[in-house]
Design a binder for these strands. Structure first.
Lengths: 144, 144
DNA sequence: CCATGATCGTCAGAGTATCGTACTAATTGG
DNA sequence: CCAATTAGTACGATACTCTGACGATCATGG
């Protein structure tokens, strides 16, 4: 599990760097990957990424510095911050998504398309018991 | 993929700490997990764990300090070091393996035993294209 | 209304993890 | 024999991660 994922992370990072976004790192990418839709509260992002609030805040600082995300006050709670993708962040997400898709195509060639699809689905189902913030991701199966 | 794995890592670490081995970390555990059989050369370990030699060396230093591994000269090459599990390291591996098995049982309850077995097998197959040192692990499918 | 407890994100401090570069010792192959 | 390559460690720098603490804000109940 880790091996495959680590390999994927490294390839995606290489692709992102090759595309010119050389100021980003694996850890930042992990956090960024958890930012969806209109944005997410920093605390939720931390839980979603399975790190402490401080770690998430640190990584978001870096992402914000480099123009990938923006951090705004939550209109519902003045203590909270919403972290959302900036234009540059969305550009990187596209690069990453394309590389990820290419990787999945290779894996499909190796495993067979059915087996890969099944793998992806099973991993998604696993998130029902391992992902504290699965409900924020539209790709995740609905709560049972 | 990452989410499930991260959740597992954190649970295993918590179990290992609860068992009294409080001087170990996730990163050390990742490297230790790649040590099998009679041991492995440091350079191979680094590739196997998908980190640089320096990182592997650093983590092995920590593991050695805490008595989990021992580092001996490779009889076939005086430059090289074999890293192998010490008794304390094997004790931790047992704790980790038990917790991992418990986690898999939970996942099996959630997914169904067949689906989980399939997941495990598929991930193993993926290592044929993602794991540089799959041939060191007896559990990994034979080279095609 | 307001005191109290809880929550939010940031700060401070410390330690771990990761990498690139460089180096010495050992090995390999022409 | 020796130039080229390889193995692991040293050095330096930066990134990553966590705990504890804090001020600001919110929610709740008397």
């Amino acid at each position: 599990m880790f091996v495959a994922h680590r390999a994927m992370e490294q390839r995606i990072l290489a692709a992102v760097h090759a595309a010119g976004f050389t100021d980003t790192t694996i850890a930042q990418g992990r956090v960024a990957a958890r930012i969806r839709g209109d944005g997410v509260r920093l605390g939720e992002l931390a839980e979603s990424a399975q790190v402490t609030k401080q770690t998430a805040s640190f990584l978001v600082d870096r992402l914000e510095e480099n123009g990938y995300v923006e951090r705004v006050v939550d209109p519902d709670d003045a203590r909270a911050r919403i972290v959302r993708m900036a234009a540059r962040g969305r550009a990187v997400q596209e690069v990453a998504a394309r590389e990820e898709a290419a990787i999945y195509r290779e894996w499909a060639e190796h495993l067979g398309a059915d087996e890969l699809a099944r793998l992806v689905e099973t991993l998604h189902r696993l998130r029902e018991v391992t992902d504290p913030y699965r409900h924020l991701d539209p790709d995740v199966p609905a709560e049972r």
